[in-house]
Design a protein around this nucleic acid. Structure first.
Lengths: 201, 201
DNA sequence: TGCTGTAGGTTAAAGCCGTTAACCATGAAG
DNA sequence: CTTCATGGTTAACGGCTTTAACCTACAGCA
């Protein structure tokens, strides 16, 4: 009987593919084992537990998510960077709902100070921060704008992925409308601040 | 041995309290039974399954959530209504994270066309729509604004409840900043539309 | 080439779920 | 006082994660 030649990585990758297909909460060791042509206990030669598996999926997902956003923002600035980054996030969540759910859950409860998800999350935040720098907000408002952006994009993407937008109006239109709304607002902050500071001189 | 005098309602209420304490995904029949001073199978005399229990919790939660938002918006208009409604939502999610998660999950997948969660969701949407009417958006933009609002508030509240805002900047400040950002943006849309329409005359 | 040790599979089994069946006690109605 | 349905109980089943015990493929070395 030939061997399956599994590795921690191949198990994680298969798990990632599976979790997107069947949903975060439906992932089971039995299904994954079956998918890999192996009996359930074989998985424990490569991962220590289901929690470990989900965490590995989450770390890998957050890293790829960070890459996607960095790549989208790369070479763009201002409104273009916002639109591209936002669209990249939305696309990632829609294409990888299970992985995103895993990454999201893991990111708020790291396993420790050396959890590899932490640098991955920081890369995401750094990309958003770099994008926001194009709007020249003053330092006190940066954090607020960042949190608003994450909230709006996370909220929109997850609700869309969950089928939460049921009225028959184009979800694409709503998304681009939201992005341009946020863009206009961010530009106005800049305008107000710079005009009021020039008045103060 | 005296009886526990359970009812579907009392079981649902105890489940609602428990789900907020231990989290949506950690709810178990055994824990709930223990909390009620009863053996697990006794619960099945009042509810048909765990899925049924969660659904009852979700329906009740969505109804209370709808009440909270209606009451907050009641008697206010424009920016005041937005701020009050948004704060009511945030408070509800923070105080009832498990119930909100249940309600959110159930709302996107109703059990059928007569699922009682549907009117409850509609009441929430109606409240937001009534609030937005104060900004006099034209009908095409209403849906987009509504979706944006739900996204931003849902995203912010759930991330805060999950402990997702870890940088030490006041989350309260970020929330009020976001609300006033949204308020300003909504007012500007009105201003632009009415000025351009008056120009068109 | 043949031997051997270990990595990577297997089967068996324990423990915790949700759920159902069979049974029994409470306490309200006649 | 008797009855009997309601609302509890214990027992048991199947599915899940996980561990233990076992076995076999196959890489490295004589």
């Amino acid at each position: 009987m030939p061997r399956a030649r599994l590795t921690p990585l191949s198990v994680t990758e298969a798990g990632a593919a599976l979790i997107d297909e069947i949903g975060f909460e439906n992932l089971s060791m039995g299904l994954l084992a079956e998918r890999l042509g192996v009996k359930t206990p074989a998985l424990y030669k490569h991962i220590t537990s289901q929690a470990d598996l989900v965490h590995r999926i989450a770390v890998r997902a957050m890293a790829q998510f960070a890459d996607a956003i960095r790549d989208a923002i790369q070479g763009r600035a201002g409104s273009d960077a916002l639109a591209a980054g936002a669209q990249a996030m939305r696309t990632y969540v829609l294409e990888h709902p299970g992985q995103y759910a895993a990454a999201d859950a893991a990111s708020s409860r790291p396993t420790g100070p050396d959890d590899p998800i932490i640098p991955a999350v920081e890369r995401v935040v750094a990309s958003w921060a770099a994008m926001l720098r194009g709007y020249h907000l003053d330092s006190g408002q940066e954090i607020h704008a960042l949190r608003m952006l994450r909230s709006a994009l996370h909220g929109f993407s997850t609700q869309e992925a969950a089928g939460g937008f049921q009225i028959d109006a184009s979800v694409d239109d709503s998304f681009t409308w939201m992005i341009s709304f946020l863009d206009r607002g961010l530009q106005n902050i800049t305008a107000q601040t710079s005009s009021s500071s020039s008045l103060a001189r």
